[in-house]
Simulated assay, not measured.
Amino acid sequence: MAKKYRSDGLAAIHETMEALHEIGVVDKQTMREFDESCLAPVQVMSPEEIRELREREHLSQPVFARYLNVSKNLISDWERGIKKPGGPALRLLTVIRKKGIQAIA
């Protein structure tokens, strides 16, 4: 998946920093901090947004869960607000929101 930057300028600077990291001029910790400042954050999704996204794609909870490689119960918990998606799951939901379920199918 391509990285999403806050701006075109930060994208260019980030590519330069990655090259410097590859040759050993920039250490891993500095690169992590730089990543955090340049890359666009993933937006948190409300339970209603997750349900609407699933329904927009015309998927049942079990089928949606299979696409995301999680349990049907977890999808249910997200949609009821008991749990919140994070990390890779939230990133996948963001991709589905922007490009549809076919982007991960």
Rank of each mutant, 00 (worst) to 15 (best):
M1Y: 09
A2V: 14
K4N: 12
K4Q: 14
K4F: 13
R6L: 13
R6K: 15
S7E: 01
D8E: 14
D8H: 11
G9V: 12
L10V: 09
L10C: 07
L10H: 02
L10F: 07
A11I: 06
A12G: 09
I13V: 10
H14K: 03
H14M: 11
T16S: 08
T16R: 12
M17I: 13
M17E: 10
E18L: 15
A19K: 14
H21Q: 09
E22Y: 12
I23G: 01
G24N: 07
G24F: 02
G24D: 07
G24E: 04
V25T: 11
V25L: 07
V25R: 05
V25W: 06
V25M: 08
V26Q: 02
K28M: 08
K28G: 04
T30S: 14
T30K: 11
M31D: 08
M31G: 02
E33A: 02
F34K: 01
D35P: 11
D35A: 01
E36W: 02
E36V: 02
S37K: 06
S37F: 04
C38Q: 01
A40F: 03
V42N: 03
V42A: 08
Q43S: 09
Q43K: 11
V44L: 08
V44W: 04
M45T: 02
S46R: 04
P47Q: 06
R51T: 10
E52S: 10
L53T: 09
R54S: 04
E55G: 10
E55P: 00
R56E: 04
R56L: 03
H58M: 08
H58K: 15
L59M: 11
S60Y: 03
V63L: 15
V63K: 15
V63T: 13
V63P: 01
F64S: 06
F64T: 06
R66Y: 00
L68A: 08
L68Y: 04
N69M: 09
V70Y: 04
S71Q: 03
S71W: 06
N73G: 14
L74T: 12
S76G: 12
S76T: 11
W78P: 06
E79G: 05
R80M: 00
R80I: 00
R80H: 09
G81D: 06
G81H: 02
G81A: 03
G81S: 03
I82R: 11
I82N: 15
I82T: 12
I82P: 05
K83Q: 13
K84T: 12
P85H: 08
G86C: 02
P88K: 13
P88G: 11
L90D: 09
L90Y: 00
L90E: 07
L90S: 05
L90F: 05
R91Y: 12
L92Q: 09
L93S: 12
T94G: 10
T94N: 10
T94A: 15
V95M: 14
V95S: 12
V95Y: 01
V95Q: 09
K99C: 11
K99W: 00
K99I: 00
K99T: 07
G100H: 05
G100R: 03
I101S: 09
A103P: 00
